[in-house]
């Protein structure tokens, strides 16, 4: 599934204009602990989190994640978006709680085994 398909079906708000939304999403991950994401998130996964600070971008880039979705309408810090654009990491937001977002991603067929 392509990232833009997720953006459309979940009505996500894309915060990084110009980010590549054609990349393939091969799974999902949800966590608010950076060490956990570094340790366990699979490459190609879309990452659902409440963490909005700068370090999420580096973690997503390091792990080759397809993108970051901030739940609960969490507003990314200014520096986070700037760095995300520089590193070509798509950042999206949603008003849904993480549980609901993950439920819908799961219903679309994404898994994290």
């Amino acid at each position: 599934m392509k990232l833009f398909e997720l953006v459309e079906s979940l009505s996500l708000d894309v915060k990084t204009p110009g980010a590549d939304l054609t990349r393939e999403v091969t799974g999902g991950y949800v966590s608010d602990l950076l060490s956990d994401v570094i340790g366990h998130a699979p490459e190609g996964a879309v990452w659902v989190t409440l963490q909005a600070h700068l370090n999420i971008v580096a973690v997503a880039s390091l792990k080759g994640l397809a993108g970051i979705i901030l739940a609960n309408n969490r507003v990314p810090e200014e520096g986070t978006l700037k760095k995300a654009s520089e590193m070509n990491v798509p950042v999206m937001t949603s008003g849904l709680p993480a549980f609901e977002l993950v439920g819908r991603l799961y219903a679309l067929g994404l898994r994290c085994r």
């Binding site: 999902g28 609901e100 993950v102 819908r104 991603l105 799961y106 219903a107 898994r111």
Partner: peptide, 12 residues
């Protein structure tokens, strides 16, 4: 299970 699959299964 991962947190992702835990949420997904319960949502399902």
């Amino acid at each position: 299970l991962s947190m992702f699959d835990t949420c997904g299964r319960l949502y399902e």
